[in-house]
């Protein structure tokens, strides 16, 4: 691929030229492709496989002003044992909380699951770099092994790509061994061209994962946005050899939607990405729908919402 030779360093002009020189995204075409993949019919054994895989990919999330230690402990219990009636149900990938609740979450889950913290003045990202770095360092010190940072959308939209880049590099350093997920907040970037550029920018700066949304802005994750991000990680791997994950977060509530995302992953980047190490769902209510469908596949009938736990 021609991109390898021309990957930019941190030089602002080179970076800008590179990002603006990426192939455009035709929105009508991308939306059409995502819609056509959503018509795949996933039944029986492949549905069972997809449901378990989706459960293992969930970052079970609570990001509310009203979060308390009690709420977080309940969430952690659910993360480890999503369906108490069926011990064969896999655990989720991670719990995702605000930084000040990381210690509670870590104590609750031990080493049995990842603890992800949102950091860097989530969700708006409107704070100084020093504050963002401190936010990150605190979360890592409290036991977070995954950091979900937000990019500075204001800087991105004003064309100051270097500022966004430098910030990601600095946060990545503050993460130490913790995995860094970079939230693009695609609902504020608006165009798919921007989504492609922001994806490359985050990956060049060292992101381990690129993530669609905070969940606080509508629209959050959509299939076309996720498609463009998957194409970006695929092309980035071809260009650099480095493999980056994708997290679709916000607005995914049903099993049907989740399975459609797995189809999107399967047919865009292939099976390599069909693992919790490289694809995640950021969600809260999705898990219970997955569990209801899982019970249905097992028993042959639908139970009701009282047969899954609310946490």
């Amino acid at each position: 691929m021609t991109l390898t030779a021309s990957l930019p360093d941190a030089d602002p002009t080179a970076l800008r030229r590179f990002l603006q020189g990426l192939p455009g995204v035709d929105e009508v075409g991308a939306v059409g492709r995502a819609a056509s993949l959503a018509t795949r019919s996933i039944k029986t054994s492949s549905k069972s496989y997809a449901i378990d895989l989706a459960i293992r990919m969930v970052d079970l999330t609570t990001l509310e002003g009203m979060d308390t230690p009690g709420k977080v402990r309940a969430l952690c219990a659910k993360a480890l044992r999503p369906d108490p009636t069926d011990p064969s149900t896999p655990s989720v990938a991670a719990v995702c909380v605000y930084g000040d609740l990381v210690d509670i979450a870590r104590a609750a889950v031990g080493d049995a699951c990842h603890v992800a913290a949102v950091a860097t003045a989530f969700p708006s990202g409107r704070a100084s770099l020093a504050v963002k770095l401190q936010d990150t360092a605190d979360a890592v010190a409290a036991g977070a092994d995954e950091i979900d940072m937000v990019i500075d959308r204001g800087a991105f939209l004003s064309g100051d790509y270097a500022r966004v880049y430098d910030e990601i590099v600095a946060i990545k350093e503050a993460c130490g061994s913790a995995h860094l997920k970079v939230i693009l907040e695609t609902g504020e970037l608006r165009t798919l061209d921007n989504v492609r550029r922001a994806s490359w920018l985050a990956m060049l700066a060292g992101a381990d994962f690129i993530k669609t949304s905070t969940g606080k802005v509508s629209p959050a994750a959509t299939p076309p946005v996720t498609l463009v991000m998957l194409e970006a990680v695929r092309d980035f791997q071809t260009a650099t050899g480095r493999t980056v994950g994708v997290k679709a977060a916000g607005g995914i509530r049903t099993t049907k939607e989740a399975v459609a995302y797995l189809v999107l992953v399967n047919e865009t980047v292939g099976e390599q990405w069909l693992t919790p190490d490289l694809f995640r769902f950021g969600a809260s209510s999705l898990l219970n729908d997955l569990l209801l469908q899982r019970q249905r596949m097992r028993t042959g009938h639908y139970s009701g919402p009282d047969y899954v736990t609310i946490d």
Binding site: P23, V25, D26, A30, V228, E231
Partner: peptide, 11 residues
């Protein structure tokens, strides 16, 4: 050469 490549491939 300035085509939207991924969508062109679909097309």
């Amino acid at each position: 050469d300035d085509a939207p490549v991924d969508e062109a491939v679909e097309g």
